[in-house]
Design a binder for these strands. Structure first.
Length: 680
DNA sequence: GACTGAGTAAACACGG
DNA sequence: CCCGTGTTTACTCAGT
């Protein structure tokens, strides 16, 4: 019909979803724009020279860091007094602290400093600690700084690409080079600063310590490829955060990632007596390997790649794995230095994790923003879990959940998806299946409780001319239950439809007729003569009955259930389904207001009461549970009295064992209902 | 292929 | 007579 075609078009529109593209675009834009400098300019400047950069110059940064270092130094001295450092004896304390900084430096500044340079700087305990703290600070600063640079570069790259002139990779490489030069410069400044400190007696350097303090900077340089990738990963279109995480993990393979796995300080910090294991690997490394999937791959090692040692700051070339192992054992044995390096690496990882968390948060916020735009509803991957595999029961579940219009029961939708999708759950799958009149029965099965679904996509349905994935019955019921007194006139129902759904602002004759048809057809809708005329109410019991579980497949099972004699015969899957479907109900007892609640309760008592108890899955036979919706449905359908009306017979059901009353007691009911509904 | 739920269309009755 | 409301029937479609 026309309606259908209309919905069809609408569906296609949102499904086109170019959200990804826009998302990425925004990401890039925000990231780049936030920096406040023109990407192009920055990039070129960087190519030529470090100082021409318009942003915070390395010198400035260094100056700032130096000031911080002084401050930290004072703090450190105080801390030393309080014995904050390593618990071990004085020696260990000294050695540990003494090693840490240099090591970290060494591992961080591999590319930047030559071994000689690194050896050059020696550090006493205090300096070590100072540097360590300073390092943390600078690490953060550098990472941010570097990130900015990368953002700019990325932005520039994008800009140029958009201009149809794909920038040669060299350009980017040059920029990175320039940036590294900047870093180097900063390192040098830092070294000078350190020397000054040394002269002043603030610190003294030990010869055997690997590199100077400045190496911290390089740490960022070590990760230059990592950070940008991480950033790109999140910003890149179609590249979910997960990918970025993966990338990070990959990039940091052997470093950050692995370090994280064995980040437990106790393991690392205290110098262990034993250095190597049978396999020749250091204890620390071994443990790391063990936890790593890489370990399993013979001939590979997380710390070995491209023929060189990936140990932070090492890069020693190794012909093969064997040589590498040897190298590991000799150069990276479990000593203070390695331990300190691990610590530093831990810091790196922590920083990255923090950064990742931040970026993830941002990504979510961006996605939320984009998806929540009512004007541009975007299709969304099915956020709901239609309970695959239990289709026959899912329906019951839905209906049960539907019984709580107040929205107390929220489908997994919101929980599952970080962002509340505007796109109606049912649209993607069944509700909009093409062609023909809108037959959304299936969608109804898939959709979450109408109340929550509506609550979440309220704006969407309100503005988008999309047919809601609910049946007329469920919509009518929702409309009625939304009102305080749980009753509506026909006209009010009409109004609710038009108010809530843009879709129902057209073809009024059609859907109004359908509404009337449903009101009359379904027993769950009860017409009540009111002072002001006739109003419609909902009989929850009937509504629940309306959707008997698809037990057709197992008539015997149904019979068994009805008889109430073979509850134990219920197969596990069915019981599981019962339990599953029961949860929604369990959570939403409050949803029922006096009126509907009263009507619903009987149901639970009737059907649940006897039958449920035997069911182990639910564990509790507590009436409020209504756990066995399907079950109850079945029973009701078959034998339950049709007191659908106003459920004024809560007693009978309870008192008289309905289950067993497979016939006699409720004859009248059966006669009333069966002919019409079941036997028809 | 039968059964069933759902949507649509239409006829009809009734009362304001 | 028109309109809104309510009931009922018939048909079709889709899922099981």
């Amino acid at each position: 019909m026309m309606v259908e075609s209309a919905s069809e078009t609408i569906r296609s529109a949102p499904s086109g979803q170019n959200g990804v593209g826009s998302l990425s675009g925004q990401t890039d834009g925000s990231s780049g724009g936030a920096k406040g400098t023109t990407a192009s300019g920055t990039g070129r400047d960087m190519t030529t020279g470090a100082d021409s950069n318009g942003e915070m110059s390395p010198a400035e940064l260094l100056h700032f860091q130096q000031q911080q270092a002084l401050q930290v130094a004072r703090q450190f001295l105080l801390q030393q007094a309080s014995g904050l450092s390593s618990p071990g004896n004085n020696d260990s304390k000294q050695s540990a602290s003494a090693v840490q900084v240099p090591v970290s430096v060494a591992m961080m500044s591999p590319q930047m400093l030559t071994p000689q340079q690194m050896q050059q700087i020696l550090s006493p305990p205090q300096l070590q600690a100072l540097l360590q703290q300073q390092q943390a600070l600078m690490l953060q600063q550098l990472q941010e700084y570097y990130k900015k640079q990368q953002e700019q570069l990325h932005l520039q790259l994008l800009t140029q690409q958009q201009a149809g002139k794909p920038q040669p990779k060299e350009a980017l490489g040059n920029k990175q080079l320039a940036f590294q030069q900047q870093l180097l410069q900063m390192q040098q400044l830092q070294q000078q600063h350190l020397l000054n400190l040394q002269r002043q007696g603030l610190v003294s350097l030990q010869p055997n310590q690997a590199s100077g303090p400045l190496q911290t900077l390089p740490q960022a340089a070590v990760c230059p490829t990592d950070l940008p990738q991480l950033w790109k990963g999140e910003g890149a279109p179609g590249q979910p955060a997960e990918d970025s995480v993966k990338q990070e993990g990959l990039d940091l393979t052997g470093t950050a990632a692995t370090a994280t796995s064995f980040a437990a300080p106790p393991k690392v910090s205290p110098p262990l007596s034993h250095h190597t294991l049978p396999n020749g690997q250091p204890t620390v490394l071994t443990s790391r390997r063990d936890s790593s999937s890489h370990e399993e791959t013979p001939g590979s090692h997380p710390l070995y790649g491209h023929g060189e040692c990936k140990w932070p700051g090492c890069e020693t070339l190794c012909e093969d794995l064997g040589q590498f192992i040897k190298h590991l054992n000799t150069e990276h044995a479990l000593d203070d230095r390695s331990t300190a390096q691990c610590r530093v690496q831990m810091q790196v990882v922590q920083q990255l994790e923090i950064q990742l968390a931040k970026e993830s948060e941002r990504l979510q916020a961006m996605m939320a923003h984009l998806h929540m735009r009512p004007s541009e509803p975007k299709p969304f991957s099915q956020p709901l879990n239609p309970v695959p595999g239990s289709s026959s029961f899912s329906k019951v579940t839905v209906s049960a959940a539907d019984s709580f219009p107040d929205g107390l029961v929220h489908p997994p939708t919101s929980a599952a998806a970080p962002v509340t999708p505007l796109r109606p759950p049912g649209l993607g799958s069944a509700s909009l299946h093409g062609g023909g009149p809108a037959r959304r029965r299936s969608s109804d099965k898939f959709c979450s409780p109408i109340s929550s679904e509506l609550a979440q996509n309220h704006e969407f349905y309100k503005n988008a001319d999309v047919r809601p994935p609910f049946t007329y019955a469920s919509l009518i019921r929702q409309a009625i239950l939304e009102t305080p007194d749980r009753q509506l006139t026909l006209n009010e129902i009409y109004n609710w439809f038009t108010r809530m759904f843009a879709y129902f602002r057209r073809n009024t004759a059609t859907w109004k007729n359908a509404v009337r048809h449903n009101l009359s057809l379904h027993k769950c809708f009860v017409r009540v003569e009111n002072v002001k005329g006739a109003v419609w109410t909902v009989d929850e019991r009937e509504y629940q009955k309306r959707r008997p579980p698809k037990m057709t497949g197992s008539p015997t099972l149904v019979k068994n259930m009805i008889s109430g004699l073979s509850y134990g015969a219920l197969n596990a899957s069915y019981q599981a389904a019962l339990a599953e479907s029961s949860f929604p109900l369990l959570n939403s007892p409050g949803m029922l207001n006096p009126g509907s609640a009263s009507s619903l309760l009987p149901l639970s008592h009737d059907d649940v009461g006897a039958p449920v108890e035997p069911l182990p899955s639910n564990g509790s036979s507590s009436p409020p549970r209504l756990s066995p919706p399907q079950y109850s449905h079945q029973v009701q359908v078959k034998e339950e009295p049709a007191e659908a009306e106003e459920d004024r017979q809560p007693g009978p059901p309870l008192g008289t064992p309905n289950p067993s009353a497979s016939g006699p007691p409720e004859d009248r009911d059966l006669e009333e209902e069966l002919p019409g509904e079941e036997l028809s």
